[in-house]
Design a binder for these strands. Structure first.
Lengths: 257, 257
DNA sequence: CTTGAACCTCCAGCCACGTCAGGTTTTATA
DNA sequence: TATAAAACCTGACGTGGCTGGAGGTTCAAG
């Protein structure tokens, strides 16, 4: 079987780099069906089959399913359909790429965090990862419920700034879990709250903060947002934190007057 | 079942955005196994399960398989393992991304070709797609068999330049298929060959062309390269083309003397 | 007490193959 | 020409991460 024009499946596999099993499979689903030796049943591939396999591999590379490839191969009008579907596939790939890029930057942020913080409570860690992952869902939420410019401005923050906020948040979470149980008016607690609020101010900027406070959003919608990013605190801790923050705000108001 | 701490599977699904069927599945594979009502068998999800699911979803987002997630969840030492595997996953994602980017630029080149050329013979088209797809395998081949700098220089060509070469090649292929049969010394044939060779020179640049000619590569290795990118021509056409090119080179040499 | 929604379990199917197992055919060597 | 080894065949099952359907049970409202 060393002829120039006829190949056994082994030779064919070697030449094309496609595994024997895959060739069997393509035969089975009618994608590439070579001649068969009438008595032995051995497959006989020819030059034309190389070209066909080429098409198959190429279309696979472009992202087509084998079923679609099968259709394309047996339709006569190729290029019409091709041009259309190529554009579609390009879009799909774009989305896949964005997804991957998001995951990558999320991982980088987590790695950085682990480097800088050492051990991190896993509940806290996952709250952060989750919020990274839903970053653009959150953005959509904001665009629905507030002026779009706020959302735009928030999402434009650099990776650097986001990373800083991550750390602040981790710091807060750690301290909350340490200090939980102390009375909310304890100076240490109040110090922590103040530090956190100031860091948030620094991240958001004064005018954005004001805009956020002004935007009145309905209770139900807030619920929806909270469902998206569950907190790393127990219900008790969360309530304690809320009280501490309220107390801090009240003090701030008193001082201003 | 409207308590604050107990959810039916439906409620839980709604809150978390994970489908009921998937929750069943996670239960089945031991990833997230909520309590069950002793008589009815209905699943009872609690607050803790939200947190666990959160971890699951986050780790999935980072690219872990459900099996690994299962291991991670049941191991106590989280962060040690995490830090290591995160770096690994980052690399894997990087590769995936490169793959996608390659497909995307291939598709863009094909779309551009179709726009500019109208109909393209599918054999020719797939030769091009295949060569795009194996571009870095080819680069590796070059790095093995020639000085690495040649390979480096070739792969640095811009998309623009590659696109131009694509068109030249298509043009060549079209004309070969038209002119095949005419004697190789026919002026029209020789004109075509000259145009093609000049375009190739323009793409490669003079010094690169020289380096390529100097690099003596063994016949067997050439075979290997040719297997990677089969030509869109029949064997006859290919041979005719080779003869025409040889003739052209000879003429050029005669003229030079 | 009835109706219908929500829930249960079990089985099948998806894609693009990989991986045996157990048998036949071809090829190379003695 | 006999035989061993390599290559080939078919058929069945496994993979991951689900989704869908059938057919039966339980729950909540009227």
């Amino acid at each position: 079987m060393k002829g120039n024009n006829k190949f056994s499946i082994g030779e064919f596999s070697e030449r094309t780099g496609i595994s024997i099993r895959t060739l069997h499979y393509y035969d089975e689903i009618g994608l590439l069906q070579p001649e068969k030796h009438p008595t032995s049943g051995h497959r006989i591939y020819k030059h034309q089959d190389i070209l066909t396999l080429q098409k198959i591999v190429s279309l696979k590379f472009l992202g087509y399913s084998l079923e679609k490839i099968n259709n394309l191969l047996h339709e006569s009008s190729f290029t019409d359909d091709l041009n259309e579907t190529l554009t579609l596939h390009l879009q799909a790939l774009e989305e896949e790429k964005e997804q991957i890029e998001q995951s990558m930057s999320a991982i980088k942020r987590v790695i950085k965090l682990l480097e800088e913080e050492g051990e991190v409570d896993s509940a806290i860690l996952f709250t952060l990862i989750h919020s990274m992952q839903t970053e653009n869902i959150q953005k959509e939420w904001m665009e629905r419920h507030m002026q779009p410019d706020i959302a735009e401005e928030l999402s434009k923050k650099t990776e650097e700034e986001k990373s800083t906020l991550d750390q602040t948040f981790i710091q807060l979470a750690k301290e909350v879990k340490q200090l939980y149980g102390k009375p909310v008016e304890d100076p240490i607690v109040q110090e922590m709250i103040k530090t956190f609020l100031e860091a948030s101010f620094a991240f958001l900027g004064e005018d954005l903060m004001q805009k956020l406070a002004d935007a009145n959003v309905e209770e139900l919608d807030i619920q929806e947002l909270e469902n998206m990013t569950p907190s790393p605190f127990t219900d008790d801790e969360q309530q304690w934190l809320n009280e501490a923050m309220e107390y801090c705000m009240k003090q701030a108001e008193l001082n201003q007057e």
